[in-house]
Design a binder for these strands. Sequence first.
DNA 1: CTGAAAGCGCTTACAG
DNA 2: CTGAAAGCGCTTACAG
Lengths: 315, 315
Amino acid sequence: MTVSTASRALNRPELVRDETRQRVEQAARLLGYVPNKMARAVVTGRSDTIVFVIPDLSLGLFHTVAAAAQQEARRRKLDLLVADSMGNADREAGLVEGARGYAEGIILLWPQADFEPQPGDPPVVSIGRQVRGAHAVLLDQTHVLEQQLVHLRRLGHERILYADGLESYGAARERRRVAERLAADAPFELSEQFEMTFEGGVALADSLDPSITAVIAFIDNQALGIIQRLAERGIRVPDDVSVIGNNDVMWARMANPAITTLHTPYEAMGRAAVSLLLDTEPADRGAQIVETFRSELVVRGSTAPPRRTDPEVTR
Amino acid sequence: MTVSTASRALNRPELVRDETRQRVEQAARLLGYVPNKMARAVVTGRSDTIVFVIPDLSLGLFHTVAAAAQQEARRRKLDLLVADSMGNADREAGLVEGARGYAEGIILLWPQADFEPQPGDPPVVSIGRQVRGAHAVLLDQTHVLEQQLVHLRRLGHERILYADGLESYGAARERRRVAERLAADAPFELSEQFEMTFEGGVALADSLDPSITAVIAFIDNQALGIIQRLAERGIRVPDDVSVIGNNDVMWARMANPAITTLHTPYEAMGRAAVSLLLDTEPADRGAQIVETFRSELVVRGSTAPPRRTDPEVTR
DNA sequence: CTGAAAGCGCTTACAG
DNA sequence: CTGAAAGCGCTTACAG
């Protein structure tokens, strides 16, 4: 009995006699044998592992994408491991660097830094932002803002404020470009920059111009902050001011009022990334593929027609 | 120039001449050399990787623990990769099985199934539930319920309902035992079993006995469901009924009213798990260590003294 | 069906 | 300081 036979008995049992297989299995059990994945990967050249780099697990936002990607990977008999860059570009680069040595594919979620593909890299797919040498799964940001505007205008709003995000975030810069373009057609207000957080919403609400009848929050958490602070100031949502969010986080429907928002197809995007990674030629040899997803409006309780404006009465 | 020298130049540069190092580095750059982590791990016997098995990433609850553990691991120059068992015990077992072959340590978060330690396993630490052959980081569930009760009773509540969770969840069974024990001393109501979700809260609110003045929700999401459904029924929180949550999820403070709850020290627990994994003798040789953490009361807007009860008026 | 041999990509004593 | 050799734990043609 040699290691060759043992290896075969464990991995390709059809190649050995039944009795041999049984002896090997029993011995393995007795000895508590654990196959060394690393060693196997060295010889087979396959680790069957995808590394999914996420910008911030503690945000409670992106884990949905990771969970969906994970399921899809699982369906295809691959492991997907999530690594958190903690919002730090250097750490992100470090994770990619680390994954190079063993991952069979890398998925980058809203990468902070520009990814520089190296020869010999495993295939890379980027979500949310296009980077060189990688297929991309994108979100149609123009469509997001258009939907928000259409919804509010249909309700009759004319004085609409778009909450601008912090310059330092790529997503905020991208959305601002979209906003400026759309505002050229049919004007709406662009706020100063606020944090894309609950606290940012609170700050925005504090400085809200009384003539505004509807606010487009950058994300749902910010919408919640706006609503809460307005309530404290005696301004009611949606009676006095409408607020629309973005992303449709789990707790958007739990709010009071429940948030009207755009549902981001995070699950679909996560699955698409895995599929792009596994089913297509890597982007470094051949064309870059871009798959774009669209968010969907979810009307809930935080938007309503504007209160009939009475110029005599200021809030 | 041999591979030995190249290996040394890359990993232990102090052992080679400066010029040699430079030549190697340049060649590596030109050739796009990526060290094969697997091969290295096979010979060194170290992968510097911790696998963190999480029951459900999409819950938006546990990722905090993972994020904290990740940071702590990072501080110690180890990688921490998160694997999602998707609430499935079989898959959980599969992940542990898979990690055996390469992880240098495994952290199990609220494991679904009983973990059976095998000889040759990497050290394991369990969070939330004690399992054999592993150190444990636990949460003092008795203290949770005691704090909730003390808070409500101090406010003057006498008719308190504890929302029982689904039998199938280990955490729910554990909490019920605690509840039954505490109820023996000073009675309170035990509800029928509800889902520990927003929807579960809605259902509970629908069947709420009018004599109850305060509800202890199983978790914050359930508290939100209770509050929303009560509001729809014209019952106000905290004016008519107080509701206290548990866990202090990110959005508990964003709710309206903001949820009074118990803050679970998830971050501290995540860090403790890493430390237990790395700084102590594995549990299979020697004593099992148990570190227990306590939640802290966070008083916000969803609890208040009971409305003066008037037996004549039923809601 | 099984064994002996070569080899995956690396590291590390051991000589020089 | 560098090279030649052995070896980590595995898999897989190649013979038998």
